[in-house]
Computed example of a mutant assay.
Amino acid sequence: MFETRSRSAKIVLQVLVTLMVLPFLFPLVVMVQGSLAGIGWGNYEAVLSRPELPLFFRNSALISIATILLVYACTMLAAFAFSKLHIRGKEVYFWLILAALTLPEVILLTPLFSTTLQLGLYNTYWSVILPLAALQIPFTVLLTRSFMNGIPDGLIEAARIDGANTLRAFWHIVLPLTRPIAAAIIVLTFIGAWNNFLLPLVFLQSPDTQTITLLPTFFIGQFNNDQTKVLAAAVVTALPIVIAYLLLQRLFERGLAAGAIK
Rank of each mutant, 00 (worst) to 15 (best):
T4I: 11
V47P: 11
W171E: 10
L70K: 00
L98V: 14
R88C: 05
L130V: 15
P240V: 01
L85Y: 05
L175K: 05
G259A: 01
L215W: 04
T75E: 02
E52A: 13
I156A: 02
R145L: 07
I191E: 13
T217W: 09
L117V: 12
L96E: 04
I186V: 15
I156M: 09
L13I: 02
F219E: 01
G38W: 07
A244E: 06
L98I: 13
T110A: 14
N59P: 10
P138T: 04
A260R: 04
R250E: 12
L142A: 08
F113W: 11
G89S: 09
L135Y: 10
R5H: 12
P152D: 08
F147R: 00
R254A: 07
V235S: 12
P180H: 01
C74K: 03
K262T: 08
N165T: 09
L19I: 09
D153P: 04
A244T: 12
L109S: 08
L85S: 02
I65G: 13
I107K: 12
L22D: 06
L13C: 06
I243N: 09
L231F: 10
L103G: 03
G34P: 00
W194Q: 05
T102E: 10
F218Y: 11
R5I: 13
D162T: 04
C74Y: 10
F113D: 02
V141Y: 00
T217F: 12
R145S: 07
F94V: 06
F197H: 08
L175W: 05
R250L: 06
E253R: 10
A238N: 08
I181S: 00
V30Y: 15
L96T: 09
L109Q: 07
I11E: 10
G163Y: 07
N165W: 04
N225G: 05
Y44V: 00
A258P: 03
L175G: 00
I68C: 05
F203W: 07
T189C: 12
G255Q: 01
A164D: 11
L201F: 13
A183E: 05
N43V: 05
T102G: 14
M20I: 06
I212V: 15
V230L: 08
T67F: 03
L112M: 14
T102A: 15
G34S: 13
S114M: 13
L135V: 07
I65L: 14
D153C: 04
V17F: 06
L16M: 12
Q136N: 11
L55V: 13
G154K: 00
A79I: 04
C74S: 15
L251Q: 15
